[in-house]
Design a protein around this nucleic acid. Structure first.
Length: 990
RNA sequence: GGGCCCAUAGCUUAGUUUGGCUGGAGCACCCGGCUGAUAACCGGGAGGUCGUCGGUUCAAAUCCGACUGGGCCCA
């Protein structure tokens, strides 16, 4: 048990966490909460499914906290949550790669000799390896979703829904096969989509070579620059810009060279001899000798052609074109009708066509090709360049672009709708809508959907010998088209599906399945309906209704958010979601990305268990999560100390006070007359209004800020100033009023806290509430969101703010006067009239000031009279040249005595505490003190006796008999001692 | 090469949309005070070229431009 709890009686966050979790689980609270109110208005949500063949890290807790806050708020508003279930993303490369590594499989051939069925079986068996860890993390962070019935993207019903969506696209002409240049991972032997490529750019060093391309029949060489020498054996054309000016430069050694005039200074320092200048158009059709002959002859090959995409801002103004390895190259190759030449196999390795580098992976061929060019005198210049280059987001292998067959979703045909639907979406933070996400939409490319992989949703397209495609949209259709009766446990994965031969929908001929799986992002983009097996099962999914809310981390702008929108647009012709709340990534203390951490890992399960879920949630909620948050051990430890700790102590105080006299809590708005009570209730209503507006706009930040400030006010002002009222007898109206206000406030606050801090809120609710723990039907999470109260009084809040500012002024004056607060002073003088807000507090405002500053009275004086408060007797505070307040420099002898007596009283109280006495334990006290202290104490004997619960309370002249129960003090040069003896109780005053 | 976000005290940050009063606060540090819920609280001190340079303006942390550095995204 941490030391703080031995002194306060308030449990720590982890203790609260464990107590609340036990309570929830004993009474099945989460299970009853998941879906919200069965008859309430529908609130649509979908959990973006994580891949769980690996463990979660702390960064995953952040967006899940944000999701949970909104869902809890909606439940409290009485909503029915549609889609309140967890989900697991089961397919795809992460799983496949794990199995490949396990068995040392390096290629498609390896996998196929291993056995595709066995491979898929192992993938299925490991896809959910860490699901339990993820689930336990959710439990400990208080993320409430139904994990007993999660949707899984590998389940047959889910896949059938995905097929239905694909068929819908196919019927609309939005799913087509094409041959295009695409990003390709040679290690995974598959194409990737642009949003996958987007995840993996890195800065690397690559060769930068300038090569001579000798012109046929001329003593001139074109200079061609490239960072990918491995593409040179596939060169078929050179491209020049028609209007760009080119120069022929005499170098003095070897043949003349041709390059863009603008590029000359990059290659030649100082003056050069230029023998000719002409626009690029003049070069059109000139033939050259290619650097390598592997591609062989072909009509139209090895010519200079023109295109305006060429620039001279880097390189030479000539671009070498290998149509199989670049989008522009491909386009120009097709236009010039020169065919393609691709010397690489599916693993990116050179084959027999280029004997020089046969068996070399594409990047490894660079130095060999370069050396060969140098030997033949064709290498004009060689160096290296740092630039960004794409790598596979899953396996980290360098990607290449190559022309390949692939199936596409024609997103470019729905760009307008994507942009339009995005415009109606509420984004937090707002700039994502037109910024990062919006930008991506306007340049949306066709979505390369097919993957040459094994563990994934099979592309449900069969093709006959004549090239007719048949897309299957359901298992029933599969059976009907030739699949025959499917077994009840039919598993629609490769092998099973690959074996099925169908009748072509167009010509009835035999059709075989296209041997692809689909991009896993299409799987997850179908989650809003596939999780309900729409349209095959009746369920709550409504094709016309977008999700009300999604929340993810920033990477999902190009990931899940994007695929959700594309599918919603192309399949249902509507937006995907109404509101999105997006957080940035967590960073380590050092500022590095958490997921790439190499050093000490912050283990989420351990942290949530050791610190409790609420402090971790609070860390994310109390900071601006739209910016990267740095997290380290120290940050975590400190999180919530202030707000959560203060709140726990207020509750502990209330409990001790209420239990001492068995006062029941007041669950309804009290009729308050005391200004402090009215102020607190008004502040509470302000917090309710702020929190409601925040959650309604899907941004919890203002709610968290309001709560933090409120707890601060509650602890450091309301309770501090109300304490004397809590010492009054149980039936005293002041005590009743203070108690009613505090208990009502805590119960309302628990409800306002419930979305943000579900554990602490539950603890407060149960501790303060009348029925308390053990009444299983009760939970703050079923208590509903607080309704508006009539307690708001802005003027009162402003007036109280002024009082607190004046307290600060008074404290400063006391310090300057060098009179401790314990010694009363006669008066605190305020110059000028009170403001309207302060005046509304009336005498109560002055009383609060007088109490807090320990002065006998607060006076108001005209500012002109400031001169009559001379510096010898007064300390005066001025602001911008005007007097504000004044305080006497010295107490009167009587006041000094009173202060000394109070000092003694405090020391005796401290002694009681150190003796371990409860504050209701009666004692006998004998004090020995010199004059004039002894006289001062005698004069105030009865008051001291009451405060100390001392009977008898005696003051003697002579020294006390020494003993273990005697203590001595020295206060400002006055020595005194006291004997404190605990009396057998029984006659303690109530 | 292009886009978005960011840069304020040793650390974490408010303030920037809509220019203006002495740039606030928390942690840590020093001095003092208060305390029968509180490792809390209150006062004071020290600590700021508000990333750099330039512009607009009577006035710039705030608006504009360039640059530097960081993060993210695109090609």
């Amino acid at each position: 048990m941490p030391p703080e709890d031995t002194t306060t009686g308030a449990p720590s966050s982890p203790e609260i966490q464990h107590r609340v979790l036990r309570y929830w689980e004993e009474h099945g609270v989460p299970e009853r909460a998941f879906g919200g109110a069965p008859d309430g208005p529908v609130f649509r949500f979908t959990e973006g499914p994580p891949g769980v063949n690996g463990p979660p890290h702390l960064g995953h807790v952040e967006p899940r906290t944000l999701k949970d806050v909104q869902l809890r708020y909606r439940r409290m508003r009485g909503a029915r949550i549609v889609g309140a279930m967890g989900g697991w993303d089961c397919h795809g490369l992460p799983v496949e790669i794990a199995i490949e590594k396990k068995h040392g499989l390096k290629s498609h051939r390896d996998i196929e000799s291993f056995g595709v069925e066995r491979f898929c079986d192992e993938c299925r068996a490991t896809a959910l390896t860490y699901a339990d860890v993820w689930r336990e993390m959710s439990r400990r962070q208080g993320f409430w979703l139904d994990y007993d019935h999660p949707y899984r993207t590998m389940d047959a019903p889910y896949i059938e829904s995905v097929w239905w969506a694909l068929k819908t696209l196919f019927d609309r002409g939005l799913l087509e096969k094409g041959h295009y240049v695409l990003p390709y991972c040679p290690r995974c032997e598959t194409t990737l989509s642009s949003h996958e490529v987007a995840q993996g750019y890195r800065e690397v060093s690559d060769p930068s070579v300038t090569v001579r391309f000798p012109l046929e029949g001329e003593e001139r060489d074109l200079l061609v620059w490239t960072t990918t020498p491995w593409t040179l054996p596939a060169n078929l054309l050179v491209v020049a810009h028609p209007e760009l000016e080119y120069s022929v430069v005499r170098t003095g050694e070897g043949r003349d060279v041709v390059l863009a005039t603008q590029a000359v200074p990059r290659y030649f320092a100082g003056p050069v001899e230029v023998v000719a200048r002409f626009p690029g158009a003049e070069l059109a059709g000139r033939r050259y000798r290619p650097p390598f002959t592997a591609a062989g002859p072909g009509e139209g090959r090895y010519r200079v052609v023109l295109d305006s995409f060429v620039t001279a801002s880097e390189g030479t103004g000539f671009v070498h074109s290998a149509p199989s390895f670049g989008p522009d190259d491909y386009r120009i190759g097709a236009r010039e009708n020169v065919g393609v030449f691709d010397p690489l196999d599916s693993r990116g390795v050179f084959g027999d066509a280029v004997p020089l580098v046969r068996g070399k992976s594409f990047k490894n061929a660079d130095p060999i090709l370069e050396a060969d060019l140098a030997e033949r005198g064709l290498l004009f210049r060689s160096g290296s360049v740092r630039h960004t280059y794409p790598f596979c987001w899953r396996c980290d292998h360098a990607l290449l672009y190559r022309a390949i067959d692939s199936w596409f979703v024609r997103t470019s045909r729905v760009t307008d709708a994507l942009v339009r639907y995005n415009r109606s979406t509420h984004w937090v933070p707002e700039y994502l809508r037109d910024g990062r996400f919006g930008n991506f939409l306007t340049e949306a490319k066709d979505w390369a959907l097919s993957r040459s992989r094994y563990w994934g949703t099979p592309l449900p397209v069969w093709v006959c010998a004549r090239g007719h495609a048949t897309c299957v949209g359901s298992f029933a259709e599969l059976a009907e088209r030739g699949g025959g009766k499917l077994p009840p446990d039919f598993d629609p994965h490769r092998v099973t599906v690959d074996r099925i031969v169908l009748r072509c929908a167009t010509c009835g001929a035999e059709s075989r399945r296209e041997p692809y799986t689909i991009d896993v992002w299409f799987d997850s983009g179908c989650a809003p309906f596939a999780q309900f097996h729409y349209p095959f099962d009746p369920g709550p999914f409504d094709p016309a209704a977008p999700l009300d809310f999604v929340s993810e981390a920033i990477d999902q702008t190009r990931g899940w958010y994007y695929t959700l929108l594309v599918i919603a647009t192309a399949v249902f012709d509507r937006p995907a979601f109404r509101a999105s709340l997006t957080c940035e990534f967590l960073l380590e203390e050092t500022g590095r990305k958490m997921s790439k951490s190499k050093g000490k890992v912050l283990e989420p399960l351990e942290i949530l268990d050791r610190l409790g879920g609420d402090p971790v949630r609070w860390l994310f909620l109390s900071q601006d999560f739209t910016a990267p948050i740095r997290v380290g051990e120290a940050t975590l430890e400190k999180s919530g100390h202030r707000t959560l700790g203060a709140l726990r102590n207020v509750v502990a105080f209330h409990q001790e006070n209420a239990r001492a006299d068995r006062i029941a809590p007041v669950p309804t708005l009290p009729e308050a007359s005391d200004p402090l009570d009215r102020w607190l209730l008004s502040r509470l209503e302000s917090v309710r209004a702020t929190s409601t507006a925040a959650h309604e706009s899907f941004d919890p930040r203002p709610a968290a800020t309001a709560v933090r400030e409120f707890v601060d006010d509650l602890s450091t002002w309301y309770l501090r100033r109300s304490r004397p009222r809590f010492w009054a007898p149980a039936d005293h109206p002041e005590r009743r009023a203070a108690h009613a206000t505090l208990s009502y406030t805590l119960l309302e606050l628990a409800r306002l806290l419930a979305p943000l801090l579900p554990f602490t809120a539950e603890w407060v609710w149960q501790e303060v509430g009348e029925r308390g723990w053990g009444h299983g039907e009760a939970s703050v999470h079923f208590a509903g969101w607080p309704a508006r109260s009539a307690a708001r009084d802005p003027s009162l809040e402003a007036g109280m703010r002024e009082v607190r500012e004046l307290v600060e002024v008074g404290r400063e004056l006391r310090q300057r006067a060098e009179v401790k607060s314990r010694i009363p002073l006669a008066e605190f003088v305020l110059f000028g009239p009170a403001s309207a807000d302060l005046a509304r507090l009336g005498p109560a405002g002055d009383a609060l000031l007088a109490d807090d500053l320990n002065v006998k009275r607060v006076l108001r004086a005209p500012a002109e009279t400031a001169a009559s408060y001379p510096e010898t007797a007064w300390v005066v505070r001025e602001e911008v040249g005007r007097p504000v307040a004044a305080l006497p420099r010295r107490p009167s002898p009587e006041l000094l005595e009173e202060g000394l007596a109070r000092e003694v009283g405090r020391r005796l109280q401290q002694a009681r505490k150190e003796l371990g006495l409860h504050y209701l334990d009666p004692v006998a006290v004998t004090v020995s003190a010199p004059e004039p202290l002894a006289g001062a104490l005698r004069a105030r004997r009865s008051g001291l006796a009451t405060d100390l619960l001392a009977d008898p309370f005696e003051v003697v002249d002579g020294p006390l008999d020494p003993g273990p129960d005697v203590r001595s003090w020295d206060v400002d040069g006055l020595a005194f001692s006291a004997r404190i003896v605990r009396r057998s109780s029984g006659s303690a005053p109530a």
